[in-house]
Amino acid sequence: MRRSARVPGVLVALALALGGVAVAAPAAHADIEACQNIVQLQGAEVTDAIRIACYVGLVGDEDGCAKGLTQAGVAGIVATAACREAPQ
Rank of each mutant, 00 (worst) to 15 (best):
M1R: 08
R2Q: 12
R2T: 15
R2S: 15
R3I: 13
R3A: 14
S4C: 09
S4I: 11
S4R: 10
A5Y: 05
A5K: 07
A5E: 12
R6F: 14
R6K: 13
R6M: 10
V7D: 00
G9V: 11
V10C: 10
V10L: 14
V10P: 03
L11S: 02
V12N: 08
A13P: 00
A13Q: 07
L14M: 11
L14D: 07
L14P: 05
A15I: 06
G19N: 02
A22H: 06
A22G: 10
A22T: 03
A22W: 11
A24R: 13
P26N: 07
A27N: 14
H29M: 13
H29D: 15
H29F: 15
H29R: 15
A30E: 13
A30I: 12
D31N: 13
I32F: 10
E33K: 15
E33N: 11
A34M: 05
A34K: 10
C35K: 06
C35T: 04
C35S: 00
C35V: 02
Q36E: 15
Q36L: 08
Q36G: 06
N37V: 08
I38H: 00
I38P: 03
I38T: 05
V39E: 01
V39W: 01
Q40F: 11
Q40E: 14
L41P: 05
L41D: 13
Q42W: 04
Q42F: 02
G43Y: 04
G43M: 04
A44S: 15
E45G: 13
V46D: 01
T47P: 12
T47L: 06
A49K: 14
A49F: 05
A49H: 07
A49N: 13
I50R: 05
R51I: 07
I52N: 12
C54V: 03
C54P: 11
C54I: 06
C54Q: 10
V56M: 06
V56F: 08
V56N: 14
G57Q: 06
G57W: 11
G57H: 09
L58W: 13
V59P: 03
D61A: 15
D61W: 05
E62L: 11
D63W: 10
D63Y: 10
C65N: 09
C65E: 09
C65R: 00
A66R: 10
G68E: 02
L69V: 02
L69R: 03
L69T: 01
L69F: 02
T70L: 03
T70E: 09
T70Y: 07
Q71I: 11
Q71C: 02
A72D: 04
A72L: 09
G73K: 04
G73Q: 06
G73C: 09
G73Y: 01
G73H: 03
G73F: 00
V74C: 02
A75G: 05
A75L: 04
G76N: 04
I77N: 01
V78S: 00
A79T: 03
T80E: 06
T80V: 04
A81W: 00
A81D: 09
A82Y: 01
C83E: 08
R84S: 08
E85N: 07
E85K: 09
E85M: 11
A86W: 07
A86K: 07
P87Q: 12
